[in-house]
Each structure stands twice: as C-alpha cells, then as structure tokens.
Computed example of a mutant assay.
Amino acid sequence: MITTTIFPSRYVQGFRATERLGEALKRYGQRAFLICDPFALDELVPRFREALEREVTGHFERFGGESSEGEIGRLADAARAQEAEVIVGIGGGKTLDTAKAVAHALERPVAIVPTIASTDAPCSALAVIYSPEGAFERYLFLPKNPELVLVDTDIIVRAPVRFLVAGMGDALSTYFEADACRQRYAPNMTGDPGSVTAYALAELCYHTLLEYGLAAKTACERQAVTPAFERVVEANTLLSGLGFESGGLAACHAIHNGLTVLHETHGAWHGEKVTIGVLAQLFLSDKSWATIDEVYRFCASVGLPTTLEDIGLKGVDDAALRQVAERACAEGETIYHEPRPVTPEAVVDALKAADAEGRRRRQQA
C-alpha cells in the first residue's frame, strides 16, 4: 500500500509574526505582489509595511471581494505587469483562495497570511472558486501546498471570538474523520490513504482542543495572546489542515454539506455546521458513551452548537432532514469513508439523536 502526506513548506506562527514577513518572503523572490482584503490593507498593513519593504519590494493590491474567475484574472494580469516573483494573500478565506489561484496561474510561489483562525484552509492545496455574485462554482485543486503560511497571533486575537470558536468546531472533526479513514483505508485529499504521521497529528489536534480550548477562548475574549491561545490557533490552522488533507474526510464534512441545502442554516458558519456533523457522526458510527459525553461537554464549554436549533433549524421536520441526508449521501461524498454502512435513513436518525442529546443536556443544565 502507498500512502501520501502533504504539507505547506514553511509554517510560521507567533505574536507580531508579520514583522518577519519580508524576511520570510525573500526566500522566494525580491518582488512581492500582496493581495489584501480591505480591512487588512487599511488597518493591518501599516503595522508591518516598513519592516517588509526593508527586505523585499512590495506591491499592495486591494481584493475585490469574490474569489471569482474574473477577479483572479484581473489580479493575475496586475501581478504579471509588476513582474511579481511571489504572491501573498492577506485576509480571510476568499482572499487567500484568490492568492493561491493567482500564484497557480502565474506558476509563482504563494505565501498565506490569514487574519482569522476560523478554518483549516490556509495550509491546503485547494481554492474555492465562486461566481461574481458569490455562488459556489468549483474547487481548484492545486499541485502543491503554499510555500509559506504565516500566522500573526496578535492579529488573530483581535478578531471576534466567534471566529476562533468556529475554527475549533472545524478542527474538532479532524480526528474523527481521519480515524474513520484510517479504519477503512479510505483515501485522503491526494487519493491515497494517509500516513501514521497524519493520523497522529489529527489525534493531537483533538487533544489540544480538549485541553486548551476553553482557556484559549477566555484569552481571546480579553485579546490576550497566551500559550493556550497559541496552541489552539495552531490546532485550528496547522494540525487541522494537515489532518483533513492528509488524514482524510468522512461523515462530518459530508453532513455539513448536506446542512447547507437548508436556507435556514446559512447564518451559521462553516465550523458551526461541521460541529453538528461531528455530533451526528458520533451516533452514526456508534461511538462510546464516554466519547459522546466528552465531545458534548467540550462543545458546551466553548459555545459550539449542540442542537439543530443552534444552527437555525428550530422545529425542523423529517422531510427537511431527509434533504440534508440525501445531499450528505450523494455519490462521491466522503461519508462513504466511514467504516460502517451509511444510508440517508441512518443520517436522519443520527441527526435526530444528536439533537435530542443536545436538548436533553441543555434542559438539565
């Protein structure tokens, strides 16, 4: 059996890490083209621009708002005109995906500087392409991971706490999905099974959240960069990124995808819907009561959803849950990486069981 594991080339994290961005970028070239979302360009770039431009020549470009073919093309033309040697994305997910796509189009290295820790996307060899109106169009699978991911925790800690907590929800799925893939010898994002290294990192991600999640949230509420906060940012970004991409996906993200078909869930963030996928997966895969109790206690402690009402589905009926389950069980979905047989009926029942347990605990609190 052949296993494949993929990683970003360099991961840098810490307090005011952006002050070292120029030093890190000059490994890849002297002319940097930096794609920045409006907040990053106006509020964050002034903090480190002088230090960066002591090391490299930087051209800063404002991101237009959508990771669309048109915006990617516009920015690729601008980067080409600047004779850019390295592309940099600074901002949220769509900004970062656009930077990855521009770098791919120009065959240049890419550096990723996230301003929130709400998903594990910064480390991945993947970009999501949308229409100019914001509708999903396709995934762009890239031949390599970013050359550099640089995470400034002084920036991350100033974002709303909900971003960090949602990131914990996304990261919470990492171990359970990787473990399902391990048991079934299911493929990861490369198409091969993962390595023992990937599975071990996925497990470390889970235990980091359990041990430091609440302390990290408390620190973030006071905009305090503590060791616990640093650990959870790393879990949300690096460990979860390595775990999902090299360990594999299973039911949790498939159920998330199913939940998106219901308009009522659109106010919930990615990691919040993934959390419901985790809770349903606990029942779908017949996890022990000790594990179920551990996960529910963690979610309640940090403020992740534990009922369908928490993601906008108060009073949802079986017909709507059937729509979720049918989408989660679509052909080619990662739910079939689960080691147990899966059907739409089983997914509906798992969602109902997960919701009932969440409501039971809330009533007893």
Rank of each mutant, 00 (worst) to 15 (best):
H104W: 14
L106S: 03
L106H: 00
E107D: 15
R108D: 08
R108A: 13
P109L: 11
V110D: 00
V110H: 00
A111Y: 02
A111T: 01
I112G: 13
P114F: 05
P114E: 06
T115L: 09
I116M: 13
D120G: 03
A121E: 04
P122N: 11
S124F: 06
A127G: 12
I129P: 00
Y130D: 02
Y130W: 08
Y130R: 11
P132H: 13
P132A: 14
P132C: 07
A135K: 15
F136L: 06
F136W: 13
Y139G: 06
L140F: 07
L140M: 14
L140Q: 13
L142R: 10
L142C: 11
P143C: 11
P143E: 10
K144Y: 11
K144Q: 13
E147V: 05
E147A: 12
L148V: 06
L148N: 07
L148R: 09
V149T: 00
L150H: 04
D152Q: 15
D152I: 07
D152M: 14
D152P: 06
T153V: 09
D154F: 12
I155V: 15
I156E: 02
I156Y: 11
I156V: 14
V157W: 06
R158N: 14
R158C: 13
A159P: 03
A159H: 05
P160W: 13
V161K: 12
F163D: 03
F163P: 04
V165S: 02
A166Y: 12
G167S: 07
G167D: 03
G167M: 04
M168A: 01
M168E: 00
G169H: 04
D170K: 11
D170W: 13
L172M: 12
S173E: 05
T174M: 09
Y175W: 15
Y175Q: 03
F176R: 06
A178E: 01
D179Y: 14
A180D: 07
C181F: 12
R182I: 04
Y185I: 08
Y185V: 08
A186M: 04
P187E: 08
P187M: 08
T190C: 06
T190A: 03
G191R: 11
D192C: 14
P193G: 09
P193D: 06
G194M: 00
G194T: 03
S195T: 12
S195G: 10
V196I: 14
T197S: 12
A198V: 02
Y199I: 03
Y199S: 02
A200W: 09
A202L: 04
L204A: 15
L204Q: 11
L204N: 10
Y206N: 04
Y206L: 15
H207G: 04
H207S: 15
L210P: 02
Y212C: 06
Y212M: 03
A215R: 12
A219S: 11
A219Y: 05
E221S: 07
E221T: 02
R222S: 15
R222W: 07
R222C: 08
Q223W: 10
Q223K: 14
Q223P: 02
Q223E: 15
V225G: 09
T226K: 08
A228H: 15
F229N: 01
E230D: 10
V232S: 02
N236V: 00
T237M: 09
